[in-house]
Nucleic acid binder design. Structure first.
Lengths: 239, 239
DNA sequence: CGAGACTTTGACCGTAGTCAATTTATGTGG
DNA sequence: CCACATAAATTGACTACGGTCAAAGTCTCG
């Protein structure tokens, strides 16, 4: 419970996982000086000439997406508090953009911790692990849009978000805040806005979910997981 | 003229012809001792207890896929000669399996080259680059199955395979060998076998492609790329 | 030549898309 | 606190892309 932990009210995972010692607090302060803020809809970009930028989401949501020349969009993944990300230089067509979905805060994790051998290893390991889990989620996303039905896709995505947010302490009971419009669901799941609406309505009528005013509640995650073939990734509780 | 793609058991090349120094010959021999063969349909697995296995495809095709409990399949990517791959321990449900689609030859790239400083760096860089490009292709795959129509998906995938195979010298003119059944196309593109068949028939009738007996010809890649919103990855010709 | 795998075709169905209008938040300035 | 503007959600009518089922035709290879 150091000053560090208190400085991250929205993101309990990021630093506690690193086990920083007191003498490293100054390093962390430097870390926080790299804080950046973005408004909803803003695309994250890296400085001119720099190869790329590596950061971590502190608060807010973002997404990785591509836009086709004719306007179709595909969202690849959602970035939640605690998630590391990399912005590539090539930000335009054919690439992958990162866009803030809410007010967003990020920090840089490349420079400040250089030289802190211990923290660096822990950080590297944590980021590597996060990267591995993210790859798994990319595969989940492909299965969703490639082989699941609309209702399965929605439930599968909601379950993923539930467990990711739970891991960073952003779930209360069975409920969490979700700043996604139905248009964003559509672009993430490869469906039309209208069909998302109808499927959500159906799921509500069947008593599977509650969804209003930016909050979702998943009733009986057990049952929903079975319906949507969902399996959680990351640190498995094993038994 | 890729050495990797062409190197086969029949290759009569002598080491002296390659200009290798004596001390390197043993390294290369060790390298080739890790050659493994798999038959079509066989799933690649790692030794018991080992964390994972890293290899490179020498000849043949494979794919990464997941199978759902109810039998639905999603193919994530195809592995072609020259492609590096990693086999994870957890090979079962919820994971990602690598399956040979043809007779397959692979080599290990972890042990043998350790200690060859120069080669190690080059190898590491090459694999890192390959990994980056593969990530980009994963995003392409998501756009395909999430936002493209059946005809666009097929053309987009065929174009990807064309350029990847061209890069390793496996294309002659506009034509290349493609060991994929229509069922595999279906599982890769999130469509049904029947619809793949109809779409292919249509593309043939329209004069876009030739496809018979395991060979494809792409007529006018320019036009097809425009239709399918295709952009090649990897070493960009830039100008 | 025969068995099995693969492809092709037809008939019909259903999930999801499109278009368009209406209703309901959400938010902002007066 | 209300009026208005805008974004988001909802609903209906209709369309169509793609799925399913089933049968027949081809190709391969032992």
């Amino acid at each position: 419970m150091s000053a560090v932990a208190q400085a991250t009210p929205h993101s309990p995972l990021t630093f506690s996982a690193l086990g920083l010692e007191d003498r490293q607090v100054e390093q962390v302060r430097a870390f926080w000086r790299t804080l950046e803020r973005f408004g909803p809809g803003v695309q994250l970009r890296c400085r001119e000439g720099q190869g790329c930028k590596r950061g971590v989401i502190v608060s807010g949501w973002a997404c990785e997406m591509r836009i086709l020349p004719d306007g179709r969009r595909q969202i690849f993944s959602f970035l939640l508090p605690g998630d590391p990300f990399v912005i590539e230089e090539n930000t335009d067509i054919g690439g992958r953009g990162i866009v803030a979905l809410t007010r967003l805060e990020t920090i840089d994790w490349t420079n400040p911790l250089l030289g802190v051998a211990d923290g660096r290893d822990a950080l590297a390991r944590a980021v590597e692990e996060a990267s591995r889990i993210k790859q798994d989620r990319m595969l989940d996303q492909m299965v969703r849009i490639g082989r699941l039905t609309a209702r399965e896709r929605l439930l599968h995505l909601l379950l993923e978000l539930y467990y990711r947010l739970e891991a960073v302490g952003l779930v209360r009971g069975d409920t969490f805040r979700i700043p996604l419009t139905q248009a964003l669901f559509a672009d993430a799941l490869g469906l039309s806005l209208v069909h998302i609406n109808r499927t959500l309505t159906q799921l509500r009528r069947e008593g599977h979910i509650l969804l209003r005013g930016g909050s979702v509640t998943l009733l009986s995650r057990e049952k929903l997981s079975a319906i949507a073939f969902f399996h959680a990734h990351g640190a498995p509780p094993a038994m």
